[in-house]
Amino acid sequence: MAKIVAGVASSHVPLLGVAVDQGKTQDDYFKPIFDGYEWTREWEAREKPDVVILVYNDHASFFDMKIIPTFAIGCGERFNICDEGWGPRPVPVVEGHPDLAWHIAQSLILDEFDMTVVNEMDVDHGLTVPMSMMFGQPDKWPVKVVPLAVNVVTYPPPSGNRCWALGEAIKRAVESFPEDLNVQIWGTGGMSHQIQGPRAGLINQEWDNMFLDGLVGDSDALRHIPHIEYLRETGSEGIEMVMWLIMRGALGRQTKALRRFYHVPCSNTAIGHIVLEPA
């Protein structure tokens, strides 16, 4: 039987991908951030997950305004790397796990989550930056990935409550997959940031840390935070944090934290990272 053994959350700032690709991770600006992920890189190397369900958002890279799926699950064999306007990142192609992905997609639909199934899809920094943060620069990624793209660009994105409930349904789906698989679920994006308008540059360390606190233990208070609170308190792009709630919802009633890291700034953004296990 497959099992969700851990949850990981991480910001996915594109500049971190640039730092990796251009060999700048030890520069003064970036070193504290990459040091902050060192524990997790070693932990991932020991854990050797078979599959990561990677919750992320596309940033007008593969999806444009023609089609806006709220929840899209990648069921293909592999996912190429998007050219985001300056050439694709020099990272390995992302291998999918079509058997598990289709199983999850079918189970979710029966469970009343009407997913968009995507067979061909390129993935952008939202997915590849967390991969680089957790696995460095291998010739081939050490895991298969089920990409789960969430619309957090065009309003309304899904509610925090819906994201949490989707996570709960993903846990049920994974646990009914017959093959023995060690599965992780990652929530990416955030934390506080606003990259538009005169209020750009907003960072709210107190709120971000409240959110990190709320992911640990048996409280489900975070699922009830309304969109307007993310917008006011964490900037217009802080809404990406609803994706972390899919990860949290998939870990069951209670969690414990194995690792937590927070750093300001990277470009316009507060970097947050947490590793959780079901408790």
């Binding site: 209020r199 540059g201 907003l202 960072i203 709210n204 006011r232 308190e233 700034p265 470009s267 316009n268």
Partner: peptide, 14 residues
Amino acid sequence: MMNAGGRSPEGVRS
């Protein structure tokens, strides 16, 4: 401003 911790939310919430 970013290197000093970013823009505070104080006064710009509503």
